[in-house]
């Protein structure tokens, strides 16, 4: 079996995940997209493990680690998302703008400060 197939699949999956992370508003959807990216990495790990016939089984071991970390990440991420939802009744990523430059006359063109505060 050619290495190219799984590796290209992984690359495409990763890109899809990138798109999801960048384009989705809902924080849970962003988490899902992150999972897609992690899985793309997993696929690469497994592929190269099989290709290189690694005696340490490092590819598969690392895949297991990634899966475990992903589980932890989702658990914590969801806890945070729920907390945010509880406090703000919204988990739209682009509305959580506490990092914004507060004094900016208008962060989004055409949007006034009052509107922005109201949206927050």
């Amino acid at each position: 079996m050619h290495v190219v197939y799984p590796v290209v699949l992984a690359a495409l999956l990763f890109s899809v995940g990138v798109y999801g992370v960048l384009a989705r508003r809902n924080a849970i959807l962003v988490l899902m997209s992150v999972e897609l990216m992690l899985n793309a990495v997993n696929l690469n790990l497994v592929t190269f493990d099989a290709w290189l016939k690694d005696t340490l089984a490092s590819g598969q071991a690392l895949t297991l680690f990634v899966i475990a970390i992903a589980a932890a990440e989702v658990g914590l991420g969801l806890a945070i998302v729920l907390l945010v939802f509880r406090n703000r009744s919204s988990i739209a990523v682009d509305q959580l703008r506490d990092l914004a430059d507060r004094d900016a006359p208008s962060a989004v063109p055409g949007e006034t400060v009052a509107e922005r505060e109201a949206a927050r």
Binding site: F14, S15, L22, N26
Partner: peptide, 21 residues
């Protein structure tokens, strides 16, 4: 469900896909 960032996200994702592939 989609933020206003779609176009930029699409460009970046396509760029990533192109480069990686």
């Amino acid at each position: 469900l989609d933020s206003g960032n779609r176009v930029a996200a699409l460009v970046v994702a396509l760029g990533t896909a192109g480069t990686l592939v």
